[in-house]
Design a binder for these strands. Structure first.
Length: 485
RNA sequence: GCUCCCAUCGUCCAACGGUCAGGGCAACUGAUUUUCACUCAGAAGACGUCAGUUCAAUUCUGACUGGGAGUACCA
């Protein structure tokens, strides 16, 4: 009754992510979400967001909402979730509380699980001893007479329910991405299914909910591989068919360890605040463990959906390389989004960061000049200070450039002041004739102007900068720089 | 310790028995330019080791080594 899951093509695909609301919305959740969303989308199925909040101790109140917001930001909005509801709700495990006890007791009744009365201290001792001898913990309560155990329960004893894992044989885990994985049952300990507080553990809740919600494909991180035999055993104990399993590689730090807060920004909110584009983020995540068959580096969700195949995922743990993400984000700014999109989205970003700049032609002109010079939005203000204030910093190199050419400045200012039209072409001509008259190269004339006007030697094309700033500001700045310090 | 997973340039991937082992990012060198970028061009850079199978192994098998994950009344 519980043989192969072998993906029957007619079965509707239902996928899910089941994060626990214990902190910041994690990039790993987004990563796994991308694949689950895509798989469901490809098959015209459903993608569910279920909140696994069975650990009351680690619960972070607004975490659930932030996870949902992250998924929306990325464009991976689930079909069903605690915030939207759906036919399979509730989608918060804490709200399904009663369910798990019933199912756990059903297993006790059928002999597939048992009440266990060991205290935390006893377990620690047992575990230490077991490890010293190189085998898995044996829980004494397993040997208790079922009748006696039930009596103790009726008398109000505190207990957990544990899975009675067979002593012999092996449990085979099928995984779309690798060969069948064999676990010796003697190596699997009797996992707790229902905690003393009545809440289920992940193992129980996960299997029960996946079953009840009709989940057909369990695509999750590799860290779950070793607990999958427990899940398989549970499906069998309940007499339910297994879903299709696929364990994705873990995102890694540069040192190859599992990606962590200490060594990488792991909160998707951080990327949002830095001004990364969700489409770049998604594109980047898609290339972790997978590449486009035609070698495309830049592609969107729709294209990903068109060509992605689970079987093509590679299993080496991909290092999360911020440099590549940065490049990709810059690529989107320069080549994928239109000028207008960039301006509008940058403006929205700045607003979200509490910087009020008008979305006008001036702003658009600055954005256009800066687009090839930034990779993420957070760099924008740092590089454009002199466009927004007269009180911009002047760095050392700029000071020097001004000092070296201070005598030229007054004349330059006056010529610019008297130009019939103040546009890039006229300014260029003015510089040209001035340089010629002075017997100087343009390379002697333009740097001090740049320094005066921007306070830095690194800026967009000077002529465009001048035209954008406008005659008034430019002349004033050059005159100000001309005055000895 | 035990169990399990993984293994191509620094990094992300391609090549799925026969190729000078290919591309992207990063780093490097040039070109262009009024600076910085962008862009373009170029060079550099890898099959972990040892067996076995085969006419032929990066590719298949095994061992080893290395890396990773799990080992909770956390998920």
């Amino acid at each position: 009754m519980s043989d192969q899951p072998s993906s029957a093509p007619t079965r509707p695909v239902v996928t899910r992510i089941a994060p626990s609301p214990t902190g910041d919305p994690h990039v790993g959740t987004a990563y796994i979400g991308l694949f689950n969303y895509t798989l469901a989308q490809q098959a015209g199925g459903k993608f569910i967001l279920r909140i696994e909040d069975t650990d009351r101790n680690r619960l972070v109140p607004d975490s659930e909402k932030r996870i949902f917001t992250m998924m929306q930001w990325l464009g991976l909005t689930p079909d069903e979730s605690p915030l939207q509801g759906g036919p399979n709700g509730p989608y918060r495990q804490s709200e399904r509380f009663d369910l798990y006890g019933d199912y756990a007791r059903q297993l006790v009744a059928s002999g597939a699980a048992y009440y266990a009365f060991e205290t935390a201290e006893e377990l620690t001792a047992l575990r230490d001893a077991a490890q010293a001898e190189g085998h898995v913990i044996a829980v004494p309560s397993r040997e208790l007479d079922a009748q006696d155990a039930q009596q103790r329960m009726d008398a109000g004893a505190e207990a957990v329910i544990r899975l009675k894992v067979p002593h012999d044989g092996e449990t085979l885990v099928s995984d779309v991405l690798r060969k069948p994985i064999a676990f010796q049952n003697r190596e699997i300990d009797d996992k707790v299914l229902l905690k003393a507080d009545g809440y289920p553990t992940y193992h129980l809740a996960n299997v029960v909910d996946d079953r009840l919600m009709g989940v057909t494909h369990v695509v999750r991180a590799e860290e779950w591989i070793t607990s999958t035999p427990i899940h398989v055993l549970l499906y069998r104990a309940f007499g339910w068919p297994e879903p299709v399993f696929a364990h994705m590689p873990l995102l890694r730090n540069a040192d190859k360890s599992k990606i962590s807060k200490r060594k990488n920004p792991t909160s998707v909110e951080w990327y949002q605040q830095q001004g990364y584009l969700p489409e770049a983020m998604l594109n980047f995540l898609a290339t972790m463990g997978w590449t486009h068959p035609d070698g495309l580096e830049v592609f969107g969700l729709a294209e990903f959906q068109r060509v992605f195949r689970l079987e093509d995922v590679t299993l080496g743990g991909p290092v999360f390389d911020l440099a590549k993400l940065n490049w990709l984000n810059g690529k989107y700014l320069r080549e994928v989004l239109s000028e207008d999109d960039v301006a509008r989205r940058l403006h929205a970003y700045l607003q979200s960061q509490k910087h009020e700049l008008p979305l006008d032609d001036y702003f658009r002109a600055v954005v256009k000049m800066l687009t090839p010079r930034i990779e993420v939005f957070s760099e924008f203000l740092d590089k454009t200070g002199y466009f927004w204030t007269e009180d911009y910093p002047v760095n050392e190199k700029a000071h020097k450039a001004i000092d070296d050419a201070r005598l030229l400045l007054p004349e330059l200012a006056s010529r610019l002041k008297n130009l019939p039209t103040f546009d890039a072409a006229s300014i260029k001509e003015a510089f040209g004739t001035f340089a010629e008259e002075q017997g100087l190269k343009l390379g002697k004339v333009m740097p001090p102007v740049r320094a005066a006007v921007a306070g830095t030697m690194e800026s967009p094309d000077l002529l465009s900068v001048l035209e954008t700033l406008g005659r008034e500001r430019v002349v004033a700045r050059i005159e100000r720089a001309a005055r000895p310090a």
